[in-house]
């Protein structure tokens, strides 16, 4: 369960304050999939970054599985991410000095899990890259790199998977493959999926689509969703 209560983000731009995310309430039940759409600069990635604990909100509280992450320090946030949140980036962000297999092994090793190699191999197999484990990121195509990134994000079997424009850097074939993978993860594992995308096809595959513009939510595009008066969404 992800809960946002009055979360906003204001940054300093020169000598004036710029609000990039206006106060927002949001609840995402466990196991649900949600896409956030909107034009560039509408605050989508900022919202996702706040939920992942990659940034601190200017106001409000964020609860992940009941834990208020806004009071955690950097290291506590890192541990929370390692255990409960998987993240997939638009630019993959694999570690260039590690092979595909080692990239997948890293979160397991950080968590101190045993037999990391077998788990990582199985995850690579799940994303269809059984034979590419020994390749470095520079030796993989964009689609393959993103699949490795998904395998890595799932390594510790997190209950939440966040994805920032996961198909934004891929051609349509690779993009479709990645969409299938993410949807499959959500359905088969019951992982809460929250993604930012421009891809209508990808957005259409999620339970709920949240539109944003100028740092405010506009609407939630599902029959059950209802926008709250203050521009907040309960999904």
């Amino acid at each position: 369960m992800i809960e946002l209560r009055g979360v906003s983000k204001t940054v300093q731009s020169g000598d004036r304050a710029l609000t990039i995310l206006h106060p927002l309430d949001l609840s995402v039940p466990a196991g649900q999939s949600l896409s956030i759409v909107g034009p560039s600069g509408s605050g989508k990635s900022t919202l996702l970054g706040l939920i992942a604990g990659l940034d601190t909100p200017s106001t409000g509280r964020i609860l992940i599985g009941g834990t208020d992450i806004t009071v955690l320090d950097e290291d506590q946030l890192a541990r929370l991410r390692g255990a409960r949140i998987g993240f997939v980036f638009q630019f993959f962000h694999l570690i260039p000095s590690l092979t595909a297999l080692e990239n997948v092994m890293v979160p397991l090793e950080i968590a101190g899990v045993g037999d990391v190699s077998a788990t990582a191999r199985r995850l690579l197999a799940d994303v269809g890259l059984t034979d590419r484990g020994h390749h470095y990121p520079s030796q993989l195509s964009g689609g393959e790199q993103q699949r490795v990134a998904i395998a890595r994000a799932l390594a510790n079997d997190p209950p939440i998977l966040l994805a920032d424009e996961p198909t934004g850097n891929l051609d349509s074939t690779n993009g479709r493959h990645v969409i299938e993978l993410l949807v499959d993860v959500n359905r088969r594992r019951g992982t809460t999926l929250m993604l930012v995308t421009h891809d209508r096809e990808l957005a259409g595959c999620t339970d709920v689509t949240l539109s944003m513009r100028d740092g405010r939510t506009e609407r939630a595009a599902t029959p059950d969703a209802a926008l709250e008066p203050a521009g907040a969404a309960a999904v």
Binding site: A78, R79, R81, F87, P96, V106, I110, A111, N156
Partner: peptide, 16 residues
């Protein structure tokens, strides 16, 4: 620095 940021994103502490 980018690799360090990735490691932090994957759960590694600053000290780690």
């Amino acid at each position: 620095l980018r690799s360090a940021a990735i490691l932090k994103c994957l759960g590694a502490t600053t000290a780690g």
